[in-house]
C-alpha cells in the first residue's frame, strides 16, 4: 500500500521536486502552497509524512506544525521541516512546535530520501 505525504512549500519548484522524489519512493504526494493551504488538505486521511517549509506567506511553517499537532489524528505523524536557516534556534523552535526532524536546503533528492528514512518506517 502506498504511503501518503503532504508537502507544504510556497515554492512551486520545491513542491515539484519533493513531490516527484517522494512519488519515486512510493509515496502519494499531496501539496499545499502555505501552512493554511496545507491544513486545508488535511481531511482526516491517513498520512505517513509531512514535509513543510518554514518561511511561507499566509501561514508559516511553525504555526502549521502546531496546528497539525493539535489535531488528534495527526499527533504522531512525522513532520520534517525544510529550512535554510541552519541556526539552532529555528530548529529548536520547530522541535518545540512538534516537528520530528529537519532538512537543510539546499538538498538533493538523495538527501531528502535519506532523511525521510530516519523518520518513516520502511
Amino acid at each position: 500500500m502506498s504511503k501518503t505525504a503532504l508537502i507544504v512549500d510556497d515554492s512551486a519548484t520545491m513542491r515539484e521536486m519533493v513531490s516527484y522524489t517522494l512519488k519515486q519512493a512510493g509515496f502519494e504526494p499531496l501539496t499545499g502552497a502555505n501552512g493554511q493551504d496545507g491544513l486545508d488538505k488535511l481531511t482526516g486521511q491517513q498520512l505517513d509524512l509531512i514535509i513543510t517549509d518554514l518561511n511561507m506567506p499566509v501561514m508559516d511553517g511553525l504555526s502549521f506544525i502546531k496546528a497539525v499537532r493539535a489535531r488528534d489524528e495527526y499527533k504522531f505523524v512525522p513532520i520534517l521541516m525544510l529550512t535554510t536557516e541552519s541556526q539552532v534556534e529555528m530548529k529548536a523552535q520547530g522541535k518545540a512546535a512538534g516537528a520530528t526532524g529537519w532538512l537543510v536546503k539546499p538538498f538533493n533528492p538523495e538527501m531528502l530520501l535519506q532523511v525521510i528514512g530516519k523518520v518513516v518506517p520502511k
Partner: peptide, 21 residues
C-alpha cells in the same frame, strides 16, 4: 546537519503533476 551540497544529476522517467496546480 544532515549533509552537504552534493552534485546529483541523474536521468529519470516520467514527470509528476502537482496536485494543486
Amino acid at each position: 546537519e544532515p549533509g552537504a551540497i552534493r552534485e546529483d544529476r541523474r536521468a529519470g522517467p516520467q514527470r509528476r503533476a502537482d496536485s494543486t496546480s
